[in-house]
C-alpha cells in the first residue's frame, strides 16, 4: 500500500471538482503529484488501493463517452469504490424529468461521489447544488473538462519537466471545446505561454481576454511551440456552417509533418481523442514518435484516481 507523503486534503480542500477555474497553482501541483503515485500503482501487478473502500461512486453520463466513462470507472475501482455507471443519455430526460429530479433521485441512493457529464454548460454546477455528495465534472457543454486538463498537464510534465515557461499551442475548434477552456485555465495558472490557433469562425469572442495569444495561421502559431494540442472537430461543423469543407480545413489546420516542422525540434503532439484522422491530424503524426496520444489515456486513469483520492479525504467521515 502506498501511503501519501502529505495529506492531499491539506492542499486540496474542495468538496467538488467542477472546473479548473478558481484552482490555485499549488492545488493543481498537489493533484499532479498525487497522480504520479497513481501511475506507479497502476503499473504494479496489484493495482488496488483502499482509500475508497465502502464508498459508492456513480458515473452519471447524460452524453455518451466510452473513453472518459471507462477511465473514471477503472480509477474508482482501483481505489476500492463500488462503481455504478448510469447512462441517462436522454431516457428519463425524454420522459420530461428535469436534471434536478434526476439529481434528487440519485441523491436518495446516498452516493459518495458523483461523476457527471452533460451536454449543457453549467449543468454540473446546478447538480452539485442539489446533492449531498462530492461531484466531479467529467465535461459540461463547452465549459470545462477539468480532469482532461489535469491529465494533459501530467503528460506534459513527465516529458518536459516544469510547465512554467513552456509554449503550448492549442489548435482547432476552440469555440465548442471544454478541453480548450480547462487547458487555458490550467496552463496559465502554472505559468505556461498559451496560444490558440484556428479559423476565426471557431474562435470565441473575448478569447484574447483569457490570457492567450491568438493565431489564424497555423505555421505562425506553431513556431517554436513546445507542445501542440490538437482538438477534435466534429464533422457536422465542416459542412459550411463554421468551415466550408473537410478538405479546406485539413489544408489549413490539419497537423502534418510540414506544419509540425515549424514547432521546436522535439515538440510533442497531444489529442484528447477521439481523433478524426485526416481531418485535424495526419495519421503519420498521430502514430509517430512525437505523439503522446496513447500516454494521455494512461495518465487519464492516474489523474482520475488522484482526484477521487483528494476528494475522498474531504468526504464526511473521511
Amino acid at each position: 500500500m502506498n501511503e501519501l507523503k502529505a495529506s492531499p486534503a491539506a492542499v486540496f480542500a474542495h468538496r467538488h471538482l467542477l472546473g479548473i477555474e478558481g484552482l490555485q497553482a499549488e492545488e493543481i501541483t498537489a493533484l499532479l503529484d498525487l497522480a504520479e503515485e497513481a501511475v506507479e500503482v497502476s503499473r504494479q501487478v496489484e493495482k488496488k488501493k483502499a482509500v475508497l473502500r465502502g464508498r459508492t461512486q456513480i458515473n452519471l453520463f447524460f452524453e455518451s463517452s466510452t473513453r472518459t466513462q471507462s477511465s473514471f470507472e477503472l480509477a474508482g475501482k482501483r481505489l476500492g469504490a463500488d462503481v455504478m455507471n448510469m447512462s441517462v443519455a436522454s431516457s428519463s430526460v425524454k420522459k420530461g424529468e428535469t436534471l434536478i429530479d434526476t439529481a434528487i433521485t440519485l441523491n436518495a441512493m446516498n452516493p459518495d461521489i458523483l461523476v457527471v457529464r452533460h451536454h449543457a454548460a453549467g449543468a454540473v454546477h446546478l447538480l452539485a447544488q442539489k446533492v449531498g455528495c462530492s461531484v466531479i465534472n467529467a465535461g459540461d457543454g463547452a465549459h470545462e473538462h477539468p480532469t482532461q486538463a489535469l491529465l494533459d498537464a501530467l503528460t506534459i510534465r513527465r516529458h518536459k519537466g516544469p510547465i512554467h515557461d513552456l509554449t503550448v499551442a492549442i489548435c482547432g475548434d476552440i469555440l465548442h471545446s471544454r478541453v480548450a477552456r480547462s487547458n487555458i485555465m490550467l496552463l496559465n495558472a502554472l505559468g505556461a505561454r498559451v496560444r490558440c490557433i484556428g479559423p476565426s469562425t471557431l474562435l470565441p469572442k473575448g478569447l484574447d481576454r483569457l490570457g492567450v495569444e491568438i493565431f489564424t495561421d497555423m505555421r505562425a502559431g506553431l513556431t517554436d511551440a513546445d507542445i501542440v494540442m490538437m482538438l477534435r472537430l466534429q464533422r457536422e461543423r465542416m459542412d459550411g456552417s463554421f468551415v466550408p469543407s473537410v478538405r479546406e480545413y485539413f489544408h489549413f489546420f490539419g497537423l502534418d509533418a510540414e506544419k509540425l516542422s515549424f514547432a521546436k525540434p522535439g515538440a510533442l503532439v497531444m489529442h484528447p481523442g477521439p481523433m478524426n484522422r485526416g481531418v485535424e491530424i495526419d495519421s503519420a503524426i498521430a502514430d509517430g514518435p512525437q505523439s503522446l496520444i496513447r500516454e494521455q489515456v494512461e495518465m487519464g486513469v492516474a489523474v482520475r484516481m488522484a482526484v477521487l483520492e483528494a476528494l475522498a479525504q474531504n468526504l464526511p467521515n473521511g
Binding site: A121, G122, A142, R181, P204, L210
Partner: peptide, 15 residues
Amino acid sequence: NEGETATRLGLSGIP
C-alpha cells in the same frame, strides 16, 4: 451577451 463572460462560461453568445 456575447463576449468574455460567455466564453468563460462556455455559453453561446448573442451579439
